[in-house]
Design a protein around this nucleic acid. Structure first.
Lengths: 170, 170
DNA sequence: TTGATGACTGTACAGATTGTGCAGTGATTT
DNA sequence: AAATCACTGCACAATCTGTACAGTCATCAA
């Protein structure tokens, strides 16, 4: 069981207020500071928490247009060389190889629809790309999120161990 | 100009090592601590930095399968009601309304291909959804990233103001 | 039943960091 | 020329972090 209920509450707390430190978190969760630290260490070690990096909003950077581009690749060469070249393009935010009609699905951003045309042209120009069909994101109905999943997983893991009583010191 | 060269370096530093505090960052960048704090405040206020929340890896949670589902909706009702229902499904990680043949594009995750079938069934069962066609992500060639974009924007903004000299105190 | 483990709890202490405020300095703008 | 604005350096109080340690429970294997 990757995350239990306490892990879930911990993640939610840090998601809601990243500024709270370990000490404050332990106070709010009603556990010892060492416990929170140990949990965070474990979650990071296990890769559940990939990091605490700043989340950048492309829109705030002027790139308010998002689009998804499906690529058809030339058979020869394979995906990797194409991916490497796409990685050179800053506007390519993400890329997956996929099943189905297309070979690759990319998420790209642009400053405007006109700029989007430019970015798509750049992508189509990449060696190995045969054809590209794109759909523009008109609105983000559900922004990227993982918390619901964390809740589901952590609530599913019925807790087994519980508290204790503690003692006196000094 | 949303972000200048110093902002760019600042963002890159926090992306690489989120643990470094404001003080350490100021030392490495060779600027005063107050400057770093002011920059971070501004970037957060302007929305460039959306937050510092923990990045959760669905794969580490057991959801190693990612897929993109294109939805055709029934004309009546519109997108929002559907989006609200999709939001109830933890496995729906993201959703956009889009141009083109489909009406909506969702990103979903599942524990396995068999589990993926279950999730898709849940989505198809959502009221308002006419049809769904999905493609599975076989490999993530380019993981979600924004740093290249930050670099492009920040390098493009030719800096104007520069340092000073400082003084003595106490 | 008896260890051995592992996860927690409180506590402690030194060192480092944060939140703020302030005065002085250039560069830029009105 | 006056007013702003962004920075620098420094100061101080209040906190927090890293780390360590002993004692308690619960679980697990012998």
């Amino acid at each position: 069981m990757p995350v239990d209920e306490l892990d879930g509450r911990l993640i939610e707390m840090f998601a809601a207020e990243p500024r709270v430190g370990v000490l404050e978190a332990s106070r709010r969760l009603g556990v010892a500071r060492g416990t929170v630290q140990a949990r965070l260490d474990r979650l990071s070690r296990d890769g559940v928490i990939a990091g605490f990096g700043p989340e950048i909003d492309p829109a705030a950077l002027g790139y308010g247009v998002t689009a998804f581009v499906t690529l058809q690749l030339r058979q020869a060469g394979g995906h990797d060389p194409v991916a490497r070249r796409l990685a050179q393009v800053p506007e390519v935010i993400e890329a997956h190889t996929i099943t189905g009609a297309g070979d690759m699905l990319c998420r790209i951003v642009a400053r405007s629809n006109a700029d989007l045309q430019r970015v798509i042209d750049v992508i189509v120009d990449v060696a190995g790309v045969e054809r590209a069909s794109s759909v523009i994101s008109l609105a983000t109905q559900i922004p990227y999120r993982t918390l619901p999943l964390v809740r589901k997983v952590s609530s599913g893991a019925l807790s087994g161990s519980r508290g204790h009583l503690g003692q006196r010191d000094s």
